[in-house]
């Protein structure tokens, strides 16, 4: 297990190196002068002067070759110093630490929404195969998997904020603020999970041990909740872990729409501002989250499946 975790951490390191290098390369391949962009972001178009641009170029080290800029950044990052935002001048680390909880909260809330939908839908769909409910669940899943989340977000706003006036569009801090973004992200995830849980349940319900359980006289509900679900859920967990990655992707757009003050919105804003100190740090944090989530999922998997659990012990 330890061996496995350390391998994961090495992978994390490589991923961080990879994506940050790619960010640097993209930054420098882009047309336009980063120093000018930053100056524009800081002082606005009207106050832009050549001296200021030059000043920024030198003070931010943008005159050095790319690889020096990168190693410079890396050396500092390894010491926990992610620099200052090129636009606001605030320390990046602080900015990110302030923003991270919002994204994690949104991701968690979305995951809860998706499981609240997918678990019952998947189970009912499998238990009542080819019934009306099954068709409804499957159609819903197909629809959900093809639904652009930014469109869904706008439709939800249209219905619940504009027409009914029940929920606010923007805001942060109260439960009612998280509902629309979490539902937007959660339903997309639920679509995929429902299909998975359904097919996994169907496979499990065919197993011999289910017949054994039925022959004991257990009720169908008991068989599904106690004997089938745990078996069916184990393979689903891995995929849900992967799906969480897509959830992080989704936060980028959904946070922008709902003005949710998380990492996703921060990343988008900093990309348009070309604030690459912030971009690098956001990208790095997303990589850390993604790898850690997958690590957690794998550990959960081991915990749930006695076959693996005991192999590791023995």
């Amino acid at each position: 297990m330890l061996n496995y975790i350390s391998r994961r951490l090495v992978l994390l390191l490589i991923v961080v190196l990879g994506v940050t290098i790619m960010t640097f390369v993209s930054m420098n391949l882009a047309p336009g002068d980063p120093a000018e962009m930053i100056a524009m972001a800081r002082y606005g178009l009207e106050n832009l002067t050549a001296e200021e641009v030059e000043h920024i170029r030198i003070s931010e080290g943008l005159d050095a070759p790319v690889w020096i800029q990168y190693t410079h950044w890396l050396a500092h990052a390894l010491r926990g110093d992610f620099g200052r935002s090129l636009v606001t001048g605030d320390p990046v680390l602080q900015e990110i630490i302030v923003r991270a909880p919002a994204t994690l909260m949104l991701a968690l809330a979305s995951l809860i929404v998706s499981l609240l939908i997918a678990i019952p839908a998947g189970i009912i769909s499998a238990a009542k195969q080819n019934s009306l409910l099954d068709y409804l669940a499957r159609s819903g899943a197909l629809l959900g998997a093809s639904m652009p989340n930014f469109w869904l977000a706008l439709l939800l706003i249209l219905l619940f904020s504009v027409t009914l006036g029940w929920l606010p569009v923007f805001g942060y801090g109260e439960l009612r603020h998280i509902i629309l973004p979490a539902v937007t992200l959660g339903t997309g995830l639920a679509a995929v999970s429902t299909r998975l849980i359904r097919s996994s349940m169907l496979e499990v319900l065919e197993q011999d041990y289910i017949t054994t359980a039925r022959a004991k006289g257990l009720r169908e509900g008991n068989i599904i909740s106690r004997h089938a679900f745990k078996n069916a859920f184990i393979p689903v967990i891995t995929v849900i872990g992967l799906q969480l990655g897509h959830l992080l992707e989704g936060t980028v757009i959904v946070e922008s729409i709902f003005g949710w003050p998380g990492l996703g919105k921060l990343l988008v804003d900093s990309i348009f501002a070309r604030d690459y100190a912030l971009i690098q740090a956001c990208v790095l944090l997303f990589a850390v989250f993604f790898v850690l989530i997958n690590l957690l999922v794998d550990i959960l998997y081991v915990y749930l499946d006695p076959r693996i659990r005991y192999e590791k012990k023995g």
Binding site: T23, S26, V252, I271, Y276, F286
Partner: peptide, 19 residues
Amino acid sequence: IFLAFPGLILALVVAGLLG
């Protein structure tokens, strides 16, 4: 390595920075 990072975010960063 590529699978260990959310692809759309990478695409966003690359496309965003390239202009």
